[in-house]
């Protein structure tokens, strides 16, 4: 269970999150929608531990742990996963090395034996099949020269390998054609489980045709202004984000609470 309370964050002195409240129970999938500049990606980055953003107020309680007190790598090892909107290219580091280093960092933390090369290869090949990635991507540099869809598949592959407790997907659908979107959505759906929560950030309703959320929240000017079931996404699709501005915001302040 993750409880975000009154979260305020700034970047270069500019306020981006302005008192955000959200609770996601174990096993639930919540979608966060919102127009550009509403703070969606900032929320993802703050949860993952990016120091560029300064948290000025509020708290994030994650199963009794003060999430904001942990550096990024410790959050990852404790089971938080961010699927990046713009996965970084790292020329010179093979995807295989990167994936193995990441998996073993997390296995060490969990007190599991580290994978040797053989075990790792067997495991990763199985997961790659599931997201329809060719084996050659193991031996290429991390994300280098990958198409948009290939980068996002690589993110979902990492999510599958790292078996997070909480996954935050930051616009994983952006720039994908419909086939790639389906593959990515299937990868995500396969990972849904009662122990795993997901926060799916998206600009478009389209992704939610394939990843059906338990709840939908609308983010505007750094706050959740409206929450509801998946029909809220359809309403947004129909009326556009402008419609939110005209709605009374008062009931939405509690929107994230079950």
């Amino acid at each position: 269970m993750i409880k975000i309370h009154n979260l305020h964050a700034t970047v270069d002195g500019k306020a981006i999150l302005n008192g955000l409240d959200l609770e996601v129970a174990d096993g639930e999938v919540h979608a966060i929608m919102g127009p550009n500049g509403s703070g969606k990606s900032t929320l993802a980055q703050v949860l993952a531990g990016r120091e560029t953003f300064e948290v000025t107020e509020g708290s994030v309680d994650w199963d009794g742990t003060d999430l904001l007190a942990l550096p990024a790598e410790e959050r990852a090892r404790a089971g938080l996963f961010l699927a990046f909107q713009y996965p970084v290219e790292i020329p010179g580091v093979s995807n295989a090395y990167f994936l193995k280093a990441a998996v073993n960092a997390i296995r060490r933390h969990r007190g599991l034996p580290e994978y040797d090369a053989m075990d790792f290869l067997a495991r990763v090949k199985t997961e790659m099949k599931a997201v329809d990635m060719k084996e050659e991507f193991l031996y290429r540099s991390v994300n280098e020269g990958f198409s948009g869809g290939e980068k996002k598949r690589n993110e979902v592959l990492q999510m599958a390998l790292l078996e997070p407790k909480l996954a935050v997907l930051d616009e994983t659908d952006s720039g994908l054609d419909i086939d790639a979107l389906k593959v990515v959505a299937e990868g995500v759906n396969r990972l849904r489980s009662p122990e795993r929560s997901m926060i799916v950030i998206t600009h478009y309703q389209r992704l939610l045709d394939y990843i059906v959320p338990d709840k939908v929240h609308v983010l505007s000017q750094g706050r959740i202004v409206r929450s509801g079931g998946r029909e809220l996404a359809l309403e947004l699709e129909e009326h556009g984000y402008g419609w939110i501005e005209t709605q009374p915001a008062a009931p939405a302040a509690q929107g994230g609470r079950p």
Binding site: A48, G49, R50, P71, A72, E73, R75, A76, R77, L82, F84, P87, V88, I90, F98, A101, A102, A105, I106, H109, Q158, L162
Partner: peptide, 10 residues
Amino acid sequence: FYLRARGLDE
């Protein structure tokens, strides 16, 4: 940050 977000220490 990308590497740290995957659990690699700094």
